[in-house]
Design a binder for these strands. Structure first.
Length: 108
DNA sequence: CTATTGACTACCG
DNA sequence: TCGGTAGCCAATA
């Protein structure tokens, strides 16, 4: 029971470590936590991250697409948050995604 | 218990 | 990035 809760908590911890102006992917977090197949679980954790100090807008899928924007208020809040950090968005995708990508494994 | 769904990723053509 | 399909794991009905 606590395993999944711990997984969620670790997801939040990693997301909080994302530097300003950087983003990471669900899969990268999942791999960092030792759950390479758990990318969807990371997304699930983000869904449950409401009300917490988790900058979930810095987490996108592996192509830089803002697949989770629908979970934010309005229709473009996630994009605006990223743009306010210097990350450029076009067509729901992070521009120069590889340049702003932050790998939790490398940071570790 | 099974079936469906989802903030994903990899593979195939 | 190019669309469809399969595999994945947990939550929900």
């Amino acid at each position: 029971m606590q395993d999944s809760a711990l997984f969620f908590d670790k997801c939040y911890d990693v997301v909080r470590r994302i530097p300003y102006g950087k983003v990471t992917s669900y899969g990268a977090i999942a791999r960092y936590l030792g759950a390479a197949k758990g990318a969807r679980m990371v997304g699930y954790a983000m869904t449950a991250s409401h009300g917490k100090d988790v900058p979930a807008h810095r987490v996108v899928n592996r192509k830089g697409l803002l697949t989770g924007k629908h979970h934010f208020e309005g229709t473009n809040l996630m994009q605006q948050l990223l743009e306010s950090e210097g990350i450029k968005i076009e067509d729901n995708k992070v521009i120069e995604f590889e340049s702003v990508f932050w790998d939790p494994v490398k940071s570790h």
